[in-house]
Design a protein around this nucleic acid. Structure first.
Lengths: 140, 140
DNA sequence: CTTGCTTCTCTAGTGACTAGAGATTGTATC
DNA sequence: GATACAATCTCTAGTCACTAGAGAAGCAAG
């Protein structure tokens, strides 16, 4: 039942100290009790919640989604439809982003390959940026 | 040699009016002359520079890169090594981002597929977020 | 007592815009 | 001339998820 200071929590969870305080500020983490000298003192289990948050951030979930997921994680008997929905939304988001980046990659590669490495006047990079119709696709 | 107002330029280039003003603020666009009533009046060719900027933004170049590219575009006789370098840097950046997103996609898909759609207690989404070792890869 | 470590609060900065307030000017219609 | 409406102006603040820095206080060891 001993409480731990923020540094321990940070070390244990891999979340930086200022980030932990930030999460408290925005209500993603409950405000802990304070020591006599006003320091945050956490129950060690809080490291688990922070690891959860960190993992979700690594997968690109935004704070609002994590808030809901972390709250769901505390209610084991709830149906998990909402968690599913949130994960699927993130999946769509990821796929959108990938699609956009893949299109960009093709275009930038095309620009680079078109360039004969001479002077600006004949540079494929500049030329294509100047004239959209020289792109591979109209998509953007 | 007639000058055009900001709305015309916006319409012509596809860059929104506040964004044009923003570009002027950060020095990406030269400050135009002003009419008697203090309105920005541009030479029509400025639309070309704005289209260039817009195109580069669509390909994900950041403002600093665009500033350099747009300046290069004005000097036709310069060697285009720098343009090449900037484009290659953007390419690496894109590929990094794609790699990260592809890894995230695999993980999120795995979470979703692991879930039997029951209650939170057995939800694959929550379970994997709670326990990093259940991930496909250690990479993140 | 001093040194060094941890922690505290608060503010401001990041990138590339976007939204909004409140004011002025230009053009068209009545 | 009056009125309506569109286009423009400046300025501030908000977005997201932190991160950096200032300046102060507490704690443990030598």
């Amino acid at each position: 039942m001993t409480l731990v200071p923020i540094g321990w929590l940070s070390h244990e969870s891999g979340v930086k100290i200022p980030t932990i305080r930030y999460y408290e500020n925005i209500g993603l983490l409950p405000p802990p009790v304070r020591s006599e000298s006003n320091r945050r003192m956490y129950p060690p289990e809080m490291a688990q919640r922070l690891r959860f948050i960190r993992h979700a951030r690594q997968l690109g979930f935004d704070v609002e989604a994590i808030r809901r997921l972390a709250d769901l994680a505390l209610k084991p008997t709830t149906p998990c439809g909402e968690a599913h929905t949130i994960a699927c939304a993130r999946l769509r988001d990821i796929e959108d982003k990938i699609a956009r980046l893949v299109a960009q990659r093709a275009e930038v590669l095309h620009m680079i390959n078109t360039c004969a490495q001479g002077c600006i006047e004949k540079c494929g990079v500049i030329e294509i940026l100047e004239d959209h119709t020289k792109c591979l696709h109209e998509s953007h």
